[in-house]
Amino acid sequence: MTLLSVKDLHVSVDGKQILNGINLEIGEGEIHAVMGPNGSGKSTLSYVLSGREGYTVTKGEILFKGENVLEMEPNERAGAGIYLAFQYPVEIPGVSNLTFLKTAVNAVRNARGQEELDAINFLKYAREKGQILEMKDELLKRPVNVGFSGGEKKRNEIFQMAMLEPTLAILDETDSGLDIDALRIVSEGVNKLRSTERSMIVITHYQRLLDHIVPDFVHVLAQGKFVAEGGKELALELEKDGYAKFGIEDGAPQAA
């Protein structure tokens, strides 16, 4: 069954056209990789799916579980099951990771008609999920992303994903800024969260993440459009021949 259906999506930011007709169908349990050079519109796609302000849909539609998400607030989309793992996770000083997640988990549970978790059950639940990502207790008590290393931030994003149990997870350049070990922990975490009821969009510039998280489909994005689509072998081709093969000039190399 189709989970997400994006049709002829055109998006502009500050009057500038960024996406020029994206079509994307994602079925339940499928993993789609979206690859593209810097400035191709990858992050815009993740923001417009999750409902960030300032991204104007000028044409097209996004249906999630058959519903028009463009009408929904970001928190309503989160409640419906859309989760975005941020490329640059945001710091919230003074608010502990646990407090933040308890508020979020219960908000999302409310939206899904589930009962809220009390403090004890929440803690049990958090510890359980934390193990998947090798999250130390100390990390749970620290303020959200404040003083976290790059790797800890990305791990925290996947940990939150485990807690919020989305049906569609969008991983926006989750590999950026990670060393090999951190990349392994994060992708193992993601793989543990793979299930037939959870679909993912893995946005990345490089192939290397897809060695760890193997996609079912690969879409190549350039200048706001998919210019090539195929199976996981497409990513390998890209790795070998570079974006030039698709007539795309790669931007500045991404900061690791």
């Binding site: 409902g51 928190n75 941020f86 945001v90 919230i92 608010v95 407090t99 919020l164």
Partner: peptide, 25 residues
């Protein structure tokens, strides 16, 4: 910060309240 909280399921007022409480901790 607001969008991050909202993406995690909080509505705008809950998000502000949470951030302000963190600020005052």
């Amino acid at each position: 910060q607001l969008f991050y909280c909202q993406q995690r399921g909080l509505n705008a007022e809950e998000a502000v309240s949470l951030i302000v409480n963190g600020f005052c901790k």
